[in-house]
């Protein structure tokens, strides 16, 4: 099984100038991943699937990750955030800069033919609001079909080229994307109009006025 760096070099040899980078994983498993640019993602994925040395025919897991805006200390850290999500190191009173957040789609690939893996692919969106389109890999691996729908549903990533991009777990009329880190469910989540909605505010006009502060201290009458 080749390392992520070797796969990147072979991808660059085959597709010169393609946006491919290795994202290091500091955990003990050391499952490093390949960050693909959106422009070439489908071609690169097809190469990974068909290359006789890799034959990554099995896309096991597809999921999204929501990375919020981060404060980066300007001098201490380079521009790129730590991809594994380590908190930025504090570097004294240097000017902090906001690193804009993005959504990330992660693919875990294995080979059933050669029985190796995993190779981890990552695609990133431009931001978290209006540039949320990444190319769909469903034409390459059919197993992405439902999982990309789930990422679309729960994270709000749009997959260009997906054959049937609909909500899958939430209902069709649902508006928001619940797996985003800044999602907050509405207060009136289960509100539906009943007579009480109008009756209770009207009834409040008939309640006695709130007692003064001194009266409240004496407590209830015996």
């Amino acid at each position: 099984m080749e390392t992520a760096e070797q796969i990147r070099d072979r991808l660059l040899a085959r597709f010169p100038g393609a946006p491919v980078a290795v994202v290091a994983n500091p955990g003990p498993g050391a499952q490093h991943s390949l960050l693909l640019g959106a422009s070439h993602a489908a071609d690169l994925a097809r190469f990974l699937r068909d290359d006789p040395g890799l034959r990554l025919d099995f896309c096991s897991n597809v999921t999204g990750v929501d990375w919020l805006d981060r404060e980066i200390a300007e001098a201490a850290k380079p521009a790129a955030p730590d991809p594994a999500g380590a908190p930025a190191m504090e570097a004294g009173p240097k000017a902090a800069r906001i690193q804009p957040g993005y959504l990330e789609v992660v693919y875990h690939l294995y080979s059933m033919a050669l029985k190796h893996g995993p190779v981890v692919l990552r695609l990133r969106t431009g931001n978290r609001s209006d540039q949320v389109t990444v190319p769909s890999l469903t034409p390459v691996w059919r197993s992405c079909e439902f999982q990309e729908r789930e990422v679309f549903d729960l994270f709000g990533v749009t997959f260009a080229g997906h054959p049937d991009l609909r909500r899958i777990l939430m209902w069709d009329e649902f508006k928001d994307h619940p797996m985003r880190k800044d999602y907050s469910e509405p207060d009136d989540y289960e509100w539906e109009p009943t007579p009480h909605g109008e009756v209770l505010p009207k009834a409040r006009r008939h309640y006695p006025a709130a007692p003064a502060a001194t009266a409240a201290k004496e407590g209830p009458a015996p």
């Binding site: 500091p26 955990g27 003990p28 498993g29 499952q31 897991n61 594994a84 999500g85 380590a86």
Partner: peptide, 21 residues
């Protein structure tokens, strides 16, 4: 410690995996 992992086992219904960051 900071890092991520994808780990899977053979469940009775198929490959059940967990991806943790």
């Amino acid at each position: 410690k900071p890092g991520e992992v994808y780990s899977r086992i053979e469940g009775p219904k198929g490959e059940i995996g967990f991806y943790l960051i």
